[in-house]
Design a protein around this nucleic acid. Sequence first.
DNA 1: CCCGGAATCTATCCAGTGACTAGATTCCGG
DNA 2: CCGGAATCTAGTCACTGGATAGATTCCGGG
Lengths: 188, 188
Amino acid sequence: MSRSYHHGDLRRAVLRAAVEVIAETGPGSVSLRGLARRAGVSHAAPAYHFGDKAGLLTAVAAEGFGLLGAELSAARERTGSFLEVGVAYVRFALTHRGYFEVMFRPDLYRADDPELSAARAATAEVLYSGLASLSDARAGADPRVAGVAAWSLVHGFSTLWLNGNLPRFEDDAEEAARCVARLLFQDG
Amino acid sequence: MSRSYHHGDLRRAVLRAAVEVIAETGPGSVSLRGLARRAGVSHAAPAYHFGDKAGLLTAVAAEGFGLLGAELSAARERTGSFLEVGVAYVRFALTHRGYFEVMFRPDLYRADDPELSAARAATAEVLYSGLASLSDARAGADPRVAGVAAWSLVHGFSTLWLNGNLPRFEDDAEEAARCVARLLFQDG
DNA sequence: CCCGGAATCTATCCAGTGACTAGATTCCGG
DNA sequence: CCGGAATCTAGTCACTGGATAGATTCCGGG
């Protein structure tokens, strides 16, 4: 019995399992006790690492913002196109659903967590950094308004797709997102 | 004691209370027992009308789609502008948060409920009925793509605003939404 | 090598919730 | 006014989140 009194990396294991469960069945169906069972530890073990359920989801959201920021800046460096940053946003939402479904639901976690705030701010920085080219394309537009429009477009597409409101595009979501985004970001 | 064995209109009362609670503290914090207490009935009474929690939220979502469809078509008739239909979408999300937060979270309710499906289809009909003018404005665009873009934009703006990601526009959300939408729907 | 504190996990307990069931009460049409 | 239908109550069970006390293991200094 003594071989596994300590799990080794329970924090990581619970985090991974949480993201998986959320991706499959939504954030509402995640339970600390279920994750504990899945990891083979007692039902109170996760609380040591995360405090409570909100703490776990805070960690999920923080990691998610970190991943999103990384993917957005990678897309920006790779393609140099603000449109492709938007496409990368949608791609993240669809391929990292477990994170995405938590990140934009502040009632599920502690939005004032410092680590999370930092990750979120860094991501926003990347998102808005490409605004110059966009506001050039739409001369005279307030860059803040243009940024919000861009964010709204890709965010809305992502959420609508995730909850099954875009059935006609379910086969090639990424290309559909690119077509949709092109209507707003006319530049390639 | 006998004076109020029957509540009178418990179904309506629970529905109203549910929408209020959701608008204030999110769908996660709604409990059948809490709503029952609020209405002054036993904890099992709501189950008679809604079956279970998913049934209650199904009713919320169905009523919400009905309201949204009505407001969208009203905006269309009143202004004749597709842009104003989009603004009405945002206005609905902000003023009927209790409904909106449920409607686009199918994991919370029974998405195959016939009454709900009908209400949702009717709303989609209104949403897409103004597409002709939009695709005229953007010549050559696939009307389906244009419709998805429009829906994505207003939906994304609404959800981002609701979860506190657009702090700079919190004072005059409706006018901000109009500015944002104008970037996509160039016609007035 | 070993000792003691720190890190990690277990075992219990409690309150709140959703769901189910049997039964009580009231309403309403014939 | 009577009997079935509609509505609500009361009780139960399994599950969850949260809290606490204590057990086990790890690790660095002597």
